[in-house]
Design a protein around this nucleic acid. Structure first.
Length: 140
DNA sequence: AACTTGACGAGGG
DNA sequence: CCCCTCGCCAAGT
């Protein structure tokens, strides 16, 4: 029997086929990114952790190459709280400017406070091991 | 088919 | 706190 590589579904009912060949591969990334509220951000690794096996920060970043203009792609940054689009998006500081327009404040090094702006979907809260509670943007 | 590059992340110095 | 290195997965050459 063609045992093939098998489907990685071995029991994971929440993950049909985390294969890049599957049309839903990119869709799952976009679906979450689309729900990020303005003024909030998510990291590539955070998305990868939510999507599960088959996804890594690298692959999520690659998927973003296919991001449509309608997608709030600017709300996805790296774990350092900085933008990594300098090598791919023009102008290099476009992403940071778009986020600043939403109220995200960056320091001189081009980094923002993730503890303050990081957002996690309620349905995935806790799985990312991030902050259990959403800090107020008012910064006590 | 192999090597290199890439919108990353964590760990060590 | 900043810099360097290793690991991951996929795509382009």
């Amino acid at each position: 029997m063609a045992n093939d590589r098998d489907r990685k579904v071995g029991g994971a009912q929440s993950q049909p086929e985390p294969d890049v060949n599957s049309p839903g591969y990119r869709a799952r990334v976009f679906d979450i990114v689309r729900r990020i509220p303005p003024g909030r951000v998510m990291t590539y690794g955070q998305l990868a952790a939510i999507l599960g096996e088959g996804y890594t920060a690298r692959t999520v970043g690659f998927v973003m190459h296919s991001a449509d203009d309608a997608l709030p792609w600017q709300r996805v940054i790296n774990a350092q709280g900085a933008c990594s689009t300098g090598r791919v998006i023009l102008p290099p500081d476009l992403q940071q400017r778009m986020l600043e327009a939403e109220g995200v404040q960056f320091d001189a090094r081009g980094r923002c406070d993730l503890a303050r702006y990081r957002w996690t979907p309620e349905e995935y809260a806790g799985e990312t091991g991030g902050d259990p509670e959403q800090p107020s943007l008012f910064g006590g």
